[in-house]
């Protein structure tokens, strides 16, 4: 298992809590389910230490909107790579609610889906590979394409915007 973020393998500094286990002392970063966050919101945001939420398919990212700046990790679970709901969650969180912390894809995260995840706002990927393989896979995936048709929140220029820019330059040159 390895987590790749910003072109390197990172340590997991988060403790994933199930809904029953007690919340550790301050200082520890905890990752809780959306259900637990909603049930224990006040105590969770009052404690010291990083707060993260794990979204699973079926959860509503809208439930995080009010508190979006309190999270330093949102993990989105892909129980099977064929379940694409997490892509929408990623875009809603980044593009609608302006989430700026780490957004980590967990679960069945495979090399050939990483570019799509990245375009939907993910910046960390948990792969079931050794460190070196995971890093190589993420690097290769992000190199696959350089032309994109759709505008998303990832900031990449689309083919359409590049065409516009080129037309503007040509128009300037001829006017």
């Amino acid at each position: 298992m390895a987590i790749v973020k910003n072109d390197s393998v990172i340590e997991n500094e988060w403790v994933t809590l199930d809904d029953e286990s007690s919340i550790p002392e301050s200082g520890t970063n905890v990752l809780v389910s959306l259900g637990r966050f909603k049930a224990e919101r006040d105590s969770l945001i009052a404690r010291n230490g990083g707060l993260g939420v794990l979204l699973v398919p079926g959860d509503a990212p809208e439930d995080l909107a009010e508190d979006i700046d309190r999270f330093s990790l949102i993990a989105v679970k892909f129980p099977a790579y064929t379940d694409g709901r997490g892509y929408s969650y990623g875009r809603v969180l980044r593009e609608r609610y302006g989430y700026a912390g780490e957004m980590r894809a967990v679960g069945d995260v495979l090399r050939d889906q990483i570019l799509y995840m990245h375009r939907c706002g993910f910046d960390a990927y948990e792969l079931s590979d050794d460190d070196e393989t995971a890093l190589e896979k993420v690097r290769a995936a992000l190199r696959d394409m350089t032309v994109y048709y759709q505008p998303t929140g990832d900031g990449r220029a689309t083919a359409g915007s590049l065409r516009d820019r080129r037309r503007a330059v040509l128009d300037d040159a001829t006017s």
Partner: peptide, 14 residues
């Protein structure tokens, strides 16, 4: 065609 080609959000639809 362009909008739907490799749409990152809609490649693993139901």
């Amino acid at each position: 065609r362009q909008w739907s080609t490799f749409h990152p959000e809609f490649t693993y639809l139901p």
